[in-house]
């Protein structure tokens, strides 16, 4: 060996030394002292009935207090086959997802582990997920390298089919519920159907309620009030407004209402009795607008505005309410 080769070998030895230190088998390291690590696991509720191909997920939440920190290279490696006493046990880490939240005094690690079963047996047998060993290092003392053991999760692996003459009842476990068909899609269709049914029922109620959402909401005077509010304050608008109100009276009474049968109308619809004088005023206005331009009325100079208020009071009567007090300035 030449001098140069010897020098190169030395450099390679120095470079490889730290890696070899990290590659130390975690199980050989001392355990971390209590109080520095807290663990929380979210394990699957099903512990039995797994068979070849099943994927089992568990989540580990570790909180590591300073000055210790996780050596992330010690996290389990995807595809690593678990062994027990050198024998492959048939549980393989299929996937790992790691996320950490670093705080001043501690760090929280969320580690999601997905194991897949690659073994089977003619009879049920025990198996375990883990344990996993993680390396932690003291940031203030590089030589203080310790391990933390994530406890294993015991599961049972079931055979794919019953082998031989087996009495099923003896093999049943109250821990294993019946296998159910996936019904997610059906549930979604059911929800959509229920929504459509609810909308249809609302529509039916609307139609049965004579196009009203509330009782008497779509009455003739309610409709007239809405129309009159949009009617222009002009001679033509006044004619339309009077005509609309006449129509409302006729529809309410199911007969043509005139000044000379007003008492009949009030007898049929006593809720309008408080408005008797105003109804007479309305007929006087109608007389002037439609029949006798020379006729007088005592409504005032702004009959359109008065009619809107009158329609609203009629609507109140129609709904069985006490009429809204009249704005005395309306017709002025």
């Amino acid at each position: 060996m030449t001098k140069f080769n010897r020098f190169l070998s030395l450099i390679l030895l120095f470079c490889a030394a730290p890696l070899s230190a990290l590659a130390i088998d975690s199980q050989d390291l001392p355990d971390i002292k209590e109080g520095f690590v807290t663990i929380k696991t979210i394990d699957p509720t099903q512990r039995v009935g797994y068979t070849v191909g099943d994927v089992i997920e568990r989540e580990v939440i570790l909180t590591i207090k300073a000055p210790y920190t996780l050596v992330e290279t010690s996290l389990p490696i995807k595809g690593y086959e678990k062994r027990y006493r050198g024998q492959v046990i048939g549980i393989e880490l299929k996937n790992i997802h790691h996320k950490k939240d670093v705080h001043k005094d501690y760090t929280t690690h969320h580690i999601k582990l997905a194991y897949q079963v690659f073994t089977n047996s003619v009879v049920a047998k025990n198996a375990a997920l883990g344990p996993e060993y993680l390396n932690l290092i003291n940031m203030k003392n590089n030589k203080d390298l310790v391990k933390y053991r994530i406890p294993s999760l015991d599961i049972a692996i079931s055979p794919l089919a019953i082998f031989g003459a087996v009495k099923v009842e003896n093999n049943m476990s109250p821990m294993l519920g019946p296998l159910l068909m996936a019904n997610t899609q059906e549930k979604q269709w059911l929800k959509i159907a229920l929504v459509i049914l609810a909308i249809s029922l609302l529509g039916l109620l609307y139609i049965l309620g004579v196009h009203t959402w509330l009782p008497r909401m779509g009455g003739p005077f309610a409709s007239a009030y809405r129309t009159l509010r949009k009617t222009p304050n002009s001679a033509e608008g006044l004619k339309q407004a009077v005509s609309k109100l006449h129509l409302s009276f006729n529809n309410t009474a199911a007969m043509s209402v005139f000044n000379d049968n007003l008492d009949t109308f009030l007898a049929k619809k006593p809720s309008f009795s408080p408005l008797k004088y105003e109804i007479q005023q309305f007929f006087a206005l109608s007389r002037q607008v439609y029949f006798e331009p020379n006729a007088t009325h005592d409504i005032g100079n702004n009959p359109s505005k008065w009619l809107v208020q009158f329609a609203r009071r009629c609507r109140d009567c129609e709904r069985g309410l006490t009429p809204t007090p009249l704005d005395t300035k309306a017709g002025a």
């Binding site: 005139f258 000044n259 000379d260 049968n261 007389r287 029949f291 006798e292 331009p293 020379n294 006729a295």
Partner: peptide, 12 residues
């Protein structure tokens, strides 16, 4: 005492 016919007059 009206100057125009009303429906009331016809009804009468």
């Amino acid at each position: 005492n009206r100057t125009a016919v009303l429906p009331d007059d016809i009804h009468a």
